[in-house]
């Protein structure tokens, strides 16, 4: 087992464990903080995958904005700071069953796929992934359309969110 594998396993267990805490913790603020831990884990996974840009954007967007928003939302939607009543709904066992089934199904499908145990080739020297990514995002031959659609989506979401959450007096 190489060092990289050990690091991966550590990060993976950390990520999964904190992910599990996200969905089971009673205290929602703690759940949001665990989510941040999970997101950090995913950022490290990105870094392990040589996707440095994604890792940094993960931190900026998810932790810097989305997670903070969650914490705000949790604080704004509580009558008091205590957690009352059960945090799971009545059908939680069914949800758990479905989740396990989903994981089992995915695992089963992956087993039958021949590219599963593939290992990564080295990144060619001098390959600038960030530059390539930037080019791909704005090149008409590549992904400028999805990129623009995403920006339109963001604007729409922004306007929609402001409209929905605005306190109409």
């Amino acid at each position: 087992m190489t060092a990289e594998q050990i690091i991966f396993l550590l990060v993976a267990f950390f990520t999964l464990g904190s992910g599990f805490m996200v969905v089971t913790t009673r205290n929602l603020i703690h759940a949001a903080l665990w989510l941040i831990a999970t997101l950090f884990g995913v950022a490290v996974i990105f870094a392990l995958l040589d996707a440095g840009f994604l890792a940094v954007v993960q931190v900026v967007v998810y932790i810097g904005a989305i997670a903070i928003l969650f914490i705000f939302a949790v604080m704004l939607t509580r009558k008091d700071m205590r957690d009352q009543g059960p945090q799971m709904n009545r059908n939680w066992w069914f949800g758990a069953l479905i989740s396990v089934l989903t994981f089992g199904g995915l695992y089963f499908l992956l087993q039958g796929w021949n590219g599963l145990s593939k290992t990564a080739a080295d990144i060619p020297s001098g390959f600038d992934a960030v530059g390539e990514l930037g080019n791909a995002l704005v090149s008409p031959n590549a992904y400028v359309l999805p990129f623009e659609v995403a920006s339109v989506l963001l604007v729409a979401a922004l306007v929609g969110a402001v409209y929905v959450a605005f306190n109409w007096k």
Partner: peptide, 9 residues
């Protein structure tokens, strides 16, 4: 900016 996000946190 990412480090700043941790400060925010």
């Amino acid at each position: 900016i990412a480090a700043g996000a941790i400060g925010t946190l």
